[in-house]
Nucleic acid binder design. Structure first.
Lengths: 141, 141
DNA sequence: CCAACTGTAACTGGTAATATTACAGTAACC
DNA sequence: GGTTACTGTAATATTACCAGTTACAGTTGG
């Protein structure tokens, strides 16, 4: 899976956890363990999709603008990592004489298309709010 | 997805399609569009898992030794690409003070563990025999 | 012995992913 | 109005991974 998916999810959970729902790219980067520039890039995508608002300038940063229980991992997957499990490497070749070799790409494609749908429906069942609950549950033990 | 998974599936479908169920690495490689050495490596794994038998020496090659309708993509996934969708990149750090940053790895891990299971159950419903049927269906149109 | 294979390991080159740097633009605050 | 603290974005290392390739030892049939 795409690391940008991870960064997006982690950032949103962090924002959901903060009392004021706000944080700067530097603060998020320290928590995620990556570079602030990457965080800005990822959260820029999330802004364009309406999941966070940003404020530039001093005292600025990112703020969650959707209820954490209304945002699922499927939303984030579609935004940040659609097609991530479909391989970029292709076997066979449609020009080929052999029936197997010439049609494998198409069949393989339909298989992974189904796999994507399967994965999305799984992610559909997990919200940012639930992620936060799970984290709290970890903490207690 | 791992390209070795693709090569494995393609090779097995090809073997299932051949009347005598047998082919050399060179023949398979030409059909898959890759190098014979890669095919030998992949089919070596399949041999170790009991899906094909090999014969070295002149006139040798690979032969399917399981009924195509008994072999599912899930079997191949577990052999060739287990953990393929779980990211190798980790956010957060268990040593961290913050509750979110310190527990994110564990929670993210459980999420992807579930995703793997979901994917496997999808692959469980697709056999090599069905793949071959789908290819034949493509050919007709 | 020779030819045709498999089984492996090692090396190469290209490409994708991550980290880093840099700087223009913007807003708060004194 | 200047300074400080941010975002937005592009460009540039740097690293890691992956497919392709080569090479050669081992095996088998003729």
């Amino acid at each position: 899976m795409n690391s940008e998916f991870i960064i997006a999810v982690h950032s949103l959970v962090l924002l959901a956890h903060k009392p004021d729902g706000m944080a700067s790219s530097e603060e998020i980067a320290a928590n995620v363990c990556t570079h602030p520039a990457r965080v800005r890039k990822v959260l820029g995508f999330l802004r364009k999709n309406g999941y966070v608002t940003t404020r530039e300038g001093s005292g600025g940063g990112y703020r969650l603008c959707i209820d954490p229980s209304d945002m699922t991992l499927a939303d984030i997957y579609r935004t940040m990592a659609a097609g991530a499990i479909t391989p970029n490497w292709c076997s066979g070749n449609p020009e080929m004489d052999c029936m197997v070799g010439s049609n494998m790409q198409e069949v393989m494609n339909s298989v992974f298309c189904g796999a994507e749908k399967q994965l999305e429906s799984y992610f559909q069942g997990i919200t940012i709010g639930q992620m936060l609950s799970r984290i709290k549950a970890c903490q207690k033990t």
